[in-house]
Design a protein around this nucleic acid. Sequence first.
DNA 1: TATTAGCACTCACCCTTTAAGAGTGCTAAT
DNA 2: ATTAGCACTCTTAAAGGGTGAGTGCTAATA
Lengths: 343, 343
Amino acid sequence: MQLDERKVKILQAIIRNYLETGEPVGSRTISKYTDLNLSSATIRNEMSDLEEMGYILQPHTSAGRIPSDKGYRLYVDTMMEERVREVDEMRELVLQKADKVDLVLKQVAKLLAANTNYAAMISSPQYHHNKVKFIQLSKVDINQIVAVVVVEGNIIKNKIIDVEEEMDDQTLLKLNILLNTNLNGLSLENINLGIITMMKEQAGIHSDVVGSVIDAVAEAIRSDEDLQIYTSGATNIFKYPELSDHEKASELINVLEEKQQLAGLVNETLANGEQNRGIQVYIGNETPVQTMKDCSVVTATYELEEGMQGTIGIIGPKRMDYDKVVSTLKQLMEQLDSLYKKT
Amino acid sequence: MQLDERKVKILQAIIRNYLETGEPVGSRTISKYTDLNLSSATIRNEMSDLEEMGYILQPHTSAGRIPSDKGYRLYVDTMMEERVREVDEMRELVLQKADKVDLVLKQVAKLLAANTNYAAMISSPQYHHNKVKFIQLSKVDINQIVAVVVVEGNIIKNKIIDVEEEMDDQTLLKLNILLNTNLNGLSLENINLGIITMMKEQAGIHSDVVGSVIDAVAEAIRSDEDLQIYTSGATNIFKYPELSDHEKASELINVLEEKQQLAGLVNETLANGEQNRGIQVYIGNETPVQTMKDCSVVTATYELEEGMQGTIGIIGPKRMDYDKVVSTLKQLMEQLDSLYKKT
DNA sequence: TATTAGCACTCACCCTTTAAGAGTGCTAAT
DNA sequence: ATTAGCACTCTTAAAGGGTGAGTGCTAATA
C-alpha cells in the first residue's frame, strides 16, 4: 500500500489532535478538523489503511485511533513544524547568573521543566574529546600493578589491576610501550574493537591486563565520577494520565531521582551526537534507558568550551509537543553558546 | 478525665495496630489483640474516652479509630520501645567508601531509604558553630554601603545595603564600632532578639542598616550557598496510600526534588539540635516544612568534625515505624562518628 | 471507481442499586 | 464496672443498565 498525500494529511491530523487531547481520535473528528472535505466514512477507510500500515493503532475495538511509535517517528522526521515563540522569558532567566556553572545548570533545568511541562535533566559538562596523553603501568606488589592514565586536560586515573602471576620488569616495560604506542593521541571514539583485539593479541598471555587498562582509559576519558546531573519537574509527569499510574510514575521518578541511569542517557547522547549533531528524539522503545519505554526523550548536546560537552534532556509522554520541545531546546542551546563562547 | 494505665495500654495497642495496617482499628480487634481480657464493649467505652481526650479520632462515624497527632506525640514521647536489630547490613555498606564525603552521603541516603522504606535526605556538613570575627561597613556610593562579614573559618560574606540618605564617615565609624563590639565572638545561636533590639536602639535612625547587617551575618554563618542535599527513595511514599494520591505525592516529591525547602528543614534541625541533642521527631503539623504536614519527619544531626554538622532526615507517613526509624538513625550516627572521628 | 449514507454492533464509562461487612453507640442485664 | 445484644451508620465492592463515541460493513450514489 502507498502512503499518498491524503493519507499523510490524515495521519498528521490524527497526531496533531492526539497531541493536544491525549484521547483516541475518531473519524468524525478528522472529517471536521481537516480541510479535506471528506465524510467520516471515507476517513474510516483511510484510517483502516493507516492502521494496517502500522502508523496508528486502536486501544480497543470501537475506540478512536492513536499514533503508534512508527507514526510518531514519521511525524518527527517529516511533518514537524518549527515553532518560534515566547522564549523571551527564557532569555531573561538564563542570562541571569553566570558566575557558577552549576547554578546556571540548575536554572536551566528548572526553566525547561517549567516551560515545557515535562521533566528536564541536564548534565554537567564533561571533557569528552580528550585524548590519551600517557599511560604507565607500575608494579606495586607481587600480584598487583597500578595503571596510571593521563588524558588531555590532565585528568589522571589510577586503577589497581590484580595479576595472577608476578610480572617481571621487562614484560611490564613491553606492555608499557605497547600501550603507549597504540593508544597515545587517541580519543574514546577512536579506540575501537580492532585496535583492542590487535593489542590483546600482541600482549599474548597478558591480554587481560590490556583489557583492564583499557577499562581504566575509558573511565579516565569519560571521567563520569564527577558527572553531576540535575533534574527538575519530575512531578510534571503527573500531568499525563498515561504515565501517572503508580507503577510507571514511581519508576520514572525513581530514575530521575537516583540519576544513575540518566548517566547512560548522557553517554548515549554524547556518543550519538558525534555524528548526529544537535537534537535527538527517542520515541518509546528507542530510548537508551529502558525505564522510559513509555515516554519520549528529547536530548541535546551543548558545549561550553571546545570539547566541554554536556547533555540536556526532556522526558515526557510520547504525545509530547515535539515541535515546541525541539524549538525550545534549540533556542536554549543558542543561549548557552552565546553565554559562554562569546566571552 | 484521667489517662489511667488501662487507657494507655489501649491507646498503645491502637497505635501499634494502626502503624502496621494503616487501617482504622476497631474495638473488637483491640479486645483480641491485647492481654487485657476486656470485651469489645468495654474497649468501646474507653475508646470513646480517648477520642474525647483527643488522642484518637474517627475518620467517619462507624469506622474504627486512628491516632491523632496528639496520640502519636504521646506514643513517641513515652511509649516507644527501642529496637535493636538487623542493622548489620548497614554497617557494611556505610563503611565501604570513605574517600569522598559526598559519595558516602549519597550512600547513606540510599541505604536509609532502602532500609526504612521511607524517603531519606541528608545534607552535606556545614560549619555551624562559627563565630563572627569581624564586621566592616564601607561606603561604596552615595546611597549604598557594603557590609563585609568575616566568620571563623574565614568565610567572607558581602552584602550591599541601600540607604536612603548619605551617611557620613563618622556615623559609619560609630556603626562599625557598635557592630563589632556587640557581635564579635558570637555565634548564630547567641545572636538573639535581645541583642538585636538593643543594637537597633543604639543605632537610632540607622536601625534598618543594623538589621541588614545581621541578615548578612546570618547568611555568612549559615553559608548555605554550597549546602548540598541528597535524597533517595522519594518514590517510597507510593507505598503508603494515605500519601500517594496525585496531589500529595506530587507535592512531596517536588519538595524532595527541588531541595529548596529541605534547606529550611536542615536549618531548623541544626538550630533545635543545639539544645535538643540528637534526634527530633516532627509529627504532622509540627514540621517546619509545611508541605509535609501530612507526614512525619524524623531528623538527626551528625557531626564529622568539631562544628562540622549536617542533617539526616527521614520523611514518611505519620504512621511511621518510629521505633525502627529512631534506632536506625541512632545506629547510623554512631557509624558516622566512628568513621570520621576515630581517624 | 471513489465516496458517502445508513445501520448494527462494540465497548468504555458513568450512574444507580444492592448487598455485605465492619464498626459504633446505647441499653439492659450481669 | 463490665458485658451481651441490637439497631444503626457508613464504606466498599459488585452488578446492572443506559449512554455515547466510534467502528466496520453494505448498499446507494456521483
